[in-house]
Simulated scan of single mutants.
Amino acid sequence: MKSFLDDSLLADNIKKNDEKAFHILFDRYYKKLVDYAFTFTGNLQEAEDIVQQTFITLWTTRKKIDSKKSIKSYLYRITHNSYIDTYRKQKHKESFFDEIKERALRDRINDHDEIIEQRILKLKIVIDALPDKCKEILQMNKFQGLKYKEIADQLDISVKTVESHMNTAFKKIRKAFKGDDLFLFLLYKFMR
């Protein structure tokens, strides 16, 4: 019971912006949460990333902590939700590229699979080379499936700013595939 009271006191202090309390809680639960996340991911690096996101979420939402409830349970719930979010994003990202490949094949591009794979790889490289905010917004829209308004709300920016970043991304993608009209056409159909 004493451990819960200690956790409760830590939760109260974290809510009051006490970084030392946060570090104590981090040290107390980090390894346990990584082990927990590992049961879902089967990958230590992914599990560690998820738990780091858990603690980022805890700190950024610290004002909402209910110190009358178990902070341990709250951490496990955040970890589980972070895993679900990560899993969904990864699946959505994979399906994004798979769908482009499938459309290319379905629309009878007369290229070999290897050429299509090269185009997909080139697209990934172009996306990775986008400016950070531009890439983040494109990924939120195309990989996570968020609408412009949802992105604007999450990033605390205007819808016009989201549109501007998306236009920049599309211009850079079009430029990278200039001369490859059929693939550009497929991308355009898919990305609008």
Rank of each mutant, 00 (worst) to 15 (best):
S67L: 00
D7S: 10
D12W: 12
T79L: 01
K172W: 08
K72F: 07
A21T: 04
E48M: 11
E48S: 14
D35I: 00
I56V: 04
V34F: 05
Y188T: 12
D18F: 00
T39I: 03
R108N: 15
K124V: 11
I50T: 14
I125R: 15
K178T: 02
F26H: 03
K72A: 13
L187W: 00
I127M: 00
K69R: 15
K142G: 02
I78V: 12
F183Q: 06
I109M: 15
R108E: 14
F190Y: 15
W59A: 10
I120K: 12
I100G: 01
D132C: 06
T79A: 06
Y83V: 11
E117G: 02
E94Q: 12
A152D: 09
A21R: 10
Y36M: 09
D7N: 13
Q90W: 04
H112L: 11
K15A: 07
D66K: 12
S158H: 01
E102Y: 14
E163T: 00
D12V: 10
F22K: 14
N141T: 10
V34G: 04
I157Q: 09
K149F: 00
F183D: 14
V162S: 01
L25K: 06
D27W: 12
F22M: 07
F40N: 14
M140C: 06
K124D: 02
I120S: 13
I125F: 07
K175M: 07
H80S: 14
R106E: 15
F38V: 04
L33R: 07
K147T: 09
S70D: 08
L44P: 00
I127R: 03
E19Y: 11
D181I: 05
F177S: 08
Y36S: 02
K135R: 13
T86G: 09
L146A: 03
A152F: 00
L138D: 08
E19L: 07
V34H: 13
K122Q: 12
I137V: 03
Q90E: 11
I65L: 05
F4I: 08
L25G: 09
L182N: 12
A11C: 13
E114F: 12
S164Q: 09
D7C: 04
L121T: 13
